[in-house]
Amino acid sequence: MEIKAQTTAQRFLLHADSLFQRAAYNDAAIAFERAIYAAETDMELYHYALLQKAYTYKATGNFTKAFNTLQRTDAATMPDSLRGVVKYETVLNAYLAGMFKEAEFELLQLEHQYPNDTAQINELLFLKILVQNELQQWDNAKQSFEKYLALHHLPPSVAEDYYAFIKNPRLRNPEKARTLSTFMPGVGQIYGGNIGQGLISLGLQLGLLGFGAYNIWQGYYITGFASGLALFQAFYFGGIENAEAATIRKNKEKIARYNGRVRFFVLEVEGGE
């Protein structure tokens, strides 16, 4: 009976593999699920089919689904031959799906459960750097990067260059930008690195204030008050909000630039192998 069930599952698997090779990914995903369903006690086939199903999702850019499919694997019953590749794909898909916390967890789990599996730990080192970068754990990322450089016989000075920003990441405090703009319109934006926006904000507020004051001086009290002062206060409070939002945006840009440089380097090395 068991032999018969296995042959059914294997038949499904063969069919799924052929669909995958023909790049019929949607059909292949269901076909692999069919093999998973039919696998019963054949744990090797079960895990192989799950891995292949994850590949179909990865091929269509559906990294979250690929990650979730790989989460269905069971470490206790998975054959050792698949363990490495399943772990690799799990971390990779988590990273590609933007699930950096999950990727970090998978990496920590690997180092904790298989501290002697240096081959796999080294293989995943480049992803570890990228994940730690995204989580802004730059000190850890630098350490990983130094290990990575040593592993690829590259000069350690590269790490100092690529992580030079740690000493002064020039990330600005959005709260401080708010406070600055509250007392000195436009200065919060300039502090956050948005000089143009700061000058425009300052100019608008001075202009409106001037217009209001001039009208009141000329005896046009209502116009001075409503067009000058009322609009001034709108831009004043708007400027405070803008100082904070613009600083947050600028910080994100800086982080993306720091990480992007390291990512480009690491992927060049990986691609060159």
Binding site: Y220, Y221, I222, T223, A226, S227, A230
Partner: peptide, 9 residues
């Protein structure tokens, strides 16, 4: 406010 300004002007 707009009405008042129109009136004033």
């Amino acid at each position: 406010l707009l009405g008042a300004q129109a009136f004033e002007n």
